[in-house]
Design a protein around this nucleic acid. Structure first.
Lengths: 128, 128
DNA sequence: TCGGATAGGGATAAATTTTTCCCCTATTGC
DNA sequence: GCAATAGGGGAAAAATTTATCCCTATCCGA
């Protein structure tokens, strides 16, 4: 595993929530688990752009941070189900607020994001 | 400048807000600007752990994404002031929600984060 | 006149995160 | 035996983000 070389800041609430939610797919994982998509394979189908590997790694971290728990059923083929802990559930409204802001400003956001990408970088692989 | 090699997802609100808020210091920059710390040097003092360079880069991106504006005063030594746009102001409540959750669960968060760091990585430079 | 404050950018290095590739477990069905 | 299913992890490569270092310019104060 990769070893951190610098200690993170843990001063304020923003630092702290950053440590547990910062990760490309973590918020979506929590969201989908809350929506009832609890099995790894289901989550992978829901988030097809993430590699299987990262999803596992980020699920592990979420579990270590006590936002989710993993339940393993001793059956074959193996079955695993993730659930939010009570602690994890408390963060869902915050995620909902993020998503809602994004939805409310969807058009404008898409616009400024695409504009910024195409200005700085004219790679034809990206545009279209 | 670095050129993106993969196109970001812009499907849902969470993707969109992620594109503009994802960046180690962006949220704090918005927060402090909202608090009235508008000059670059002030922001750098407020966020001493970030290098000057990244702060500038992230401020540029926030500006391109129309969350902040930059006003340059033609004086010497140079004076610059950032302000939130009306659009930028709409995201402050969301950031407040993040910070509030972090504050409410401060002790527990610090605990699980430190636990996770010291388990995976026993580098003496980090512990203490 | 040198040092510091103010603002910011280029080049390059280092750190960190995510992806890719490949391998392993065990059972069921063909 | 072989493929498919379901869940995971190691190693190395690629992508991305942050940090370091150095330079530009002006004016003020010691």
């Amino acid at each position: 595993m990769y070893e951190r070389k610098v200690m993170p800041n843990l001063n304020c609430g923003l630092d702290l929530i950053g440590e547990v939610l910062y990760g490309k797919w973590k918020i979506r994982l929590l969201w989908f688990i809350d929506q009832g998509h609890q099995r790894p394979s289901e989550l992978q189908r829901k988030i097809p752009d993430a590699s299987r590997r990262v999803l596992n790694m980020q699920l592990n971290e979420l579990e270590k941070h006590e936002l989710i728990t993993r339940k393993i059923y001793p059956v074959v083929p193996p079955k695993v189900e993730y659930s939010l802990t009570d602690f994890g559930k408390t963060v869902i409204p915050v995620i909902a607020a993020l998503g809602q802001w994004g939805d409310e400003h969807e058009d404008r956001l898409r616009d400024v994001i695409l504009k910024q990408i195409s200005i700085s970088d004219l790679d034809e692989n990206l545009i279209r």
